[in-house]
Amino acid sequence: MKDNNYRKKYSKIPVVVIIFNRPDKTKILYESFKYYKPSKLLIISDGPRNSFKDEKEKVDQSRKVFEKIDWECEVLFNISETNLGCRERIISGLNWVFNREEKAIILEDDCIPSEEFFTFMELMLSKYQANKKISSVCGTNFLPDWSKTKNSYLYSKYCHVWGWGTWKDRWEKIDFNLDRLDEIKKTKFLKGYLGTFRAYLYWHWIFNNVKKKKINSWAYIWNFTNFINKSISIIPVTNLLSNIGIGKNSSHTRSLPYKYITAQESKKKLKFPLKYPSNLLLDF
C-alpha cells in the first residue's frame, strides 16, 4: 500500500489538544490544523491559578479558540475550573481521552506540527497498533544530525512528548504514582537497561523528585512506565514539530543545553513513501 493512498482507506485519528493560558500560541496551533482538518478534537484545559492576575481571562481566551471550528469537526472539552497543575491535569485529561478513544494524536499548545507530522502519525499508529512492544509514536527528534540509518524512523527507549501519539491499552499501563520505583531501585534494573551509570543516576534523581512531587511532570512518569515495561517509542529521522514555547515564560523548558532545530528550520524533510526498518532493534 502506498503512503499517498493511506487516507483513502483510513479515517482520521482523533487529535488531543492540551491548552492552558497561552491564547496566542493556541491560535497558531489552531491555524496549523487547517491542513489536516481533524474530524475530532478533544480539548484538555486546566483552570487558572488564583495567585496569578488576569490568568482566568487568558485561560478563557485559550478555550474560545476551539469553540468555533470552520470545518466539519466534533469538538469535546474536558475543562477543570480549578488549577490541577501540569501532572494531574494532563494525566486526568488523557485518562478521559482513552476512556473514549482507542488511539489518539496528542499536541500541547506550543507544539506546532509540520504537514508531514499527521501523515506520519496516521501511518505509525495504524501499522503498530497490534504490536504491544511499541508504546508511543513521537513527532520530535532531538538528534537532527542522526545519519546511522537510511530508514524513515528509529526505535528508542525514550519517548519525546512534543507532539506524539499512543493507544488506549498502552496508556492504561501508566504508573501514575511511581508505585514500582522502590522495587526498581532495589533490583537496579535501570542501571542495566539505560546502559550507562550517568543515565542511571540522572533518571533515578528525576524519578525520586517526581515521586516526592518536587518536579511537577507527567512526561517523566510516562517515560518511567515505558522503561519498566521495556517499551519502545518510534522517532522520525527528522523533527516534525516546531516548539514555540521555549523561553523565560515556559513552565519547564526555558532553555536547552543543545541546538534545537525546529521542523521549520530543518533542511531534512521526511519523504514518502516511508522506508521501514526490517528489524525492531533499539537505535538509542
Rank of each mutant, 00 (worst) to 15 (best):
K2T: 07
D3F: 02
D3E: 14
D3G: 06
N4P: 00
K9C: 07
Y10T: 05
Y10F: 10
I13N: 04
I18W: 05
I19K: 02
F20W: 05
F20C: 07
N21T: 01
T26S: 06
T26H: 04
I28M: 00
L29T: 01
E31H: 01
K34A: 01
Y35L: 05
S39E: 07
K40M: 02
L41R: 08
S45C: 13
S45W: 01
G47D: 10
R49G: 05
N50P: 01
D54G: 00
D60M: 08
D60P: 00
S62N: 12
S62R: 13
F66C: 10
E67T: 15
I69L: 10
I69R: 09
W71D: 13
E72V: 14
L76T: 12
L76M: 13
F77P: 06
N78D: 15
I79G: 02
N83G: 14
N83M: 08
N83D: 14
L84W: 12
G85D: 14
G85Y: 13
R87P: 11
R89V: 01
I90W: 09
N95Y: 08
N95W: 03
N99V: 02
R100N: 13
E101R: 01
E102V: 00
L107K: 06
I112F: 05
I112Q: 08
P113C: 06
S114Q: 05
S114A: 09
E115L: 08
F117M: 04
T119F: 00
T119R: 08
L125C: 09
K127S: 09
Y128D: 10
A130K: 08
K133I: 02
I134Y: 12
V137W: 06
V137K: 01
V137R: 03
N141D: 11
F142N: 13
K148P: 00
T149A: 11
N151A: 12
S152N: 09
S156I: 07
S156N: 15
V161Y: 11
V161M: 13
G163A: 03
W164P: 12
T166S: 11
D169Q: 12
E172C: 05
E172T: 05
F176V: 14
F176P: 02
L178E: 08
D182G: 11
T187M: 04
Y193E: 05
R198Q: 10
A199Y: 11
L201W: 10
L201K: 15
L201V: 14
Y202P: 00
W203L: 10
W203H: 15
H204N: 15
H204E: 15
W205C: 11
N208L: 14
V210S: 12
K211R: 15
K214A: 13
N216T: 06
S217H: 07
W218H: 15
A219H: 13
F227E: 12
F227V: 15
I228D: 10
I235R: 12
I235E: 13
I244R: 06
I246V: 14
H252C: 04
T253H: 10
S255P: 04
P257E: 09
Y258L: 13
Q264L: 09
Q264F: 07
K269C: 04
K269P: 03
L270Y: 02
K271W: 00
F272V: 03
F272M: 05
P273A: 03
L274I: 09
Y276Q: 09
Y276S: 02
S278N: 11
D283V: 00
